[in-house]
Amino acid sequence: MTDYLDTPEARRIAYNYTPGKGPGVVFLGGFRSDMEGTKALALEAWARAQGRAFLRFDYSGHGVSGGQFDEGAIGDWFEDARDAIRALTEGPQILVGSSMGGWISLLLAREHPEHVAGLVTIAAAPDFTEDGYWAGFDKETRHQLEAEGSVQIPSDYGDPYVITRRLINEGRTRLVLRSDLTLPFPTRFLQGTADEAVSVETAVRLIGHAQGDDMRLTLVKGADHRFSEPDCLALIETALEEVLGALG
């Protein structure tokens, strides 16, 4: 059953929480995705079978949460994740971050390490507003964004994405690949080689940049950005089990 959390920032966040033993698992979805996706539901089923606590939620402007997507930015969604973890879970959690959720999870690890017991990322997209969108815009598109406040770009997932000036500018205050990033807990990065949204080079850059004693990157030949085929879902579960095993 979907419940709702009213956050200190006056946002209404939809969530589903499965009680169980700790450390719990929190799924952090991607840009314009929601908590009803294949990976979120598969991990919820895995957690239920394990008797482990599990939280999935929609960022503001996503899914059935309140707010408008076009008004949001990375910092807003980071706050949503932080507030949900603080209000709805107990003790440090294992974060599973998909795409943008990977960036959000890294922000949580940097800003609130007390909430993080371990980390699994799936096609993590740190700094994508700067290194993906802004870097890929030509001069005319950048001018339009600055002058009009937004641009539309094609999406492989349906309607065009609206990219706002605020998304780009606010994202610059949340970058994680330009300064120290310490991950002092078991960390597993998963990445498909056929991912057209996040490159293998990004995954290699991330593991090269981050500091930690227990980090591994797994590349899956032929896997795309969705990373939702049965063998990919099994790999996510295996990564979670590795993190749990390392935690003892």
Rank of each mutant, 00 (worst) to 15 (best):
F27A: 10
L177F: 05
G91F: 04
D34F: 07
E9Q: 12
G149D: 09
A47C: 11
L28V: 13
L177Y: 04
L95V: 07
A246I: 04
M1V: 13
M100H: 04
I74E: 05
L55M: 06
P8A: 06
D76Y: 09
V198C: 13
E90I: 09
A147N: 12
H115D: 14
P113G: 01
A47T: 06
V176I: 13
P160D: 12
L88I: 04
Y4P: 02
W103P: 00
A40Q: 09
A194S: 15
D159K: 14
L175Y: 03
G118R: 03
A10I: 08
R216T: 13
G63I: 02
V26S: 06
T202E: 14
A117Y: 06
I94P: 02
F27N: 10
T187G: 07
T173M: 09
E229C: 00
G66A: 03
V64D: 13
A14G: 07
G222C: 06
S150D: 10
D224M: 10
E140Q: 11
Y59H: 08
I104H: 03
G136C: 04
S99D: 04
E170Y: 08
L183I: 14
S65R: 12
T173G: 10
G132S: 09
G61F: 07
G75Q: 00
W77V: 00
G66T: 01
A135Q: 10
G24N: 05
W46T: 08
G136I: 04
E170R: 11
I94M: 01
F227C: 01
T202L: 15
L219Q: 04
G158C: 01
L240Y: 05
G72Q: 09
D80Y: 05
I236M: 14
V162Y: 05
P154I: 07
R142G: 08
I153P: 02
L181M: 11
A73E: 14
Y161G: 00
D3M: 10
T89K: 09
A10D: 15
R205K: 12
L206N: 08
P186M: 10
I94E: 04
I207S: 04
V198E: 06
E9K: 07
T89P: 04
V64I: 15
A40M: 09
F128E: 04
R165Y: 02
R226G: 14
G208K: 10
P160T: 08
R174N: 14
R142W: 01
A10V: 10
A124P: 05
R226Q: 13
R226T: 11
K139Y: 12
A239P: 00
D127P: 02
A81W: 01
G22P: 01
A10S: 15
V120I: 11
T7Y: 08
F185R: 03
E9W: 08
A73I: 00
A40L: 09
F227Q: 00
V26C: 05
